[in-house]
């Protein structure tokens, strides 16, 4: 339903987002993963029609949404990275105002507020000023404010930064419920790989303003599927043994630390049997043996040479 084509944004000549192609299908849950400064928020601002792209297109059900921002605004709810709340008003008063600007009135408004409050678990504190809330509670209210008009698309920009694990779980659970029970389309931005992994059907990995990989989790992991990572612990080590391991066909890299070997090798190189064979030959005892499953973190590392949180 929503699509961006070669979306780019420059600030004072500095390219912050470059040729970004992204689509959201109805009912999907899509993640946008990338380190700080990757251009995620800028992308979100363009998609939610707050800022105009320097070039490229955004379409909503085929309609140009840059000229007609109403197309997206009317069906989307945006949870900004910042806490866009009145600190001096209570949760209830905040939601009442935000609901009223979506032209909700009277009973309809009261019901929407009540549902949103219950949904994020703030019903019992609704009369307290936001100023007195914990970081997690503010984050949850920040989400509630975007739900009042029951949007078809919910766009969340790092909704869990800097909060306690309990609030974080609450938020993740709530987003999942929205997606799976209400069929809300989700665009979820984060630099926490685990969150995106847990929540999203499909994801885009961004770095330096560009999408460097996209697809389902499995598809992305397959980027690493040509390699195996094996950790071996032994009772003793000698030079000759290490040299011989290096000569095994398909081995790319070995890291030696005391009595530990980390081996990265091409998949299907029957590494394990050859290793066992070698240990016997050198009278070395194998103490521990572990193959590691690669994570999206490793995918990012593989693609950029950096970790997500540096």
């Amino acid at each position: 339903m929503l699509e961006t084509i070669n979306l780019s944004k420059s600030f004072k000549g500095k390219k912050v987002v470059q040729d970004l192609n992204l689509y959201l299908a109805d009912g999907e849950s899509v993640g946008l993963l990338g380190p700080n400064g990757a251009g995620k928020s800028t992308t979100i601002s363009m998609i939610s029609t707050l800022i105009k792209p320097t070039s490229g297109r955004i379409t909503m059900n085929g309609v140009n949404a840059i000229d007609k921002p109403g197309e997206i605004r009317s069906v989307s709810g945006v949870v900004p990275q910042e806490l866009a709340l009145y600190q001096e008003l209570s949760a209830y008063e905040n939601l009442k105002f935000f609901g009223s600007i979506y032209k909700l009135r009277g009973k309809e408004l009261a019901k929407a507020i009540q549902q949103a409050l219950e949904f994020v678990g703030l019903d019992d504190r609704k009369k307290d000023l936001v100023r007195t809330y914990s970081g997690g509670m503010k984050r949850r209210l920040n989400i509630a404010a975007a739900l009042l008009h029951r949007p078809q698309i919910l766009i969340l920009d790092e909704p869990t930064v800097g909060i306690d694990p309990q609030s974080r779980n609450h938020i993740l659970e709530a987003v999942r419920t929205l997606n799976q029970q209400d069929g809300t389309t989700i665009l979820y931005t984060s630099h926490y790989m685990e969150e995106v992994e847990q929540l999203c059907d499909r994801l885009y990995i961004m770095d330096h303003g560009k999408v460097i990989a996209a697809g389902t989790k499995e598809e992305l992991l397959r980027i690493l599927s040509t390699e195996d990572k094996i950790k071996v612990e032994v009772n003793k080590l000698d030079e000759a043994f290490v040299e011989q391991v290096k000569t095994i066909e398909g081995v790319h890299k070995i890291e030696v630390t005391e009595l530990q070997l980390k081996i990265i090798a091409a998949k299907g190189s029957s590494l394990i049997s050859k290793l066992v064979h070698l240990t016997e030959k050198h009278h070395i005892q194998l103490l521990n043996f572990q193959t590691e499953t690669p994570s999206l973190e490793d995918v990012f590392l593989h693609l950029t040479g950096r970790t997500l949180r540096d």
Partner: peptide, 16 residues
Amino acid sequence: VEIRDHIFNRILLANS
């Protein structure tokens, strides 16, 4: 404060 805290953006997004 409304502008710095991006509350004004919310108002824009509401198509108000």
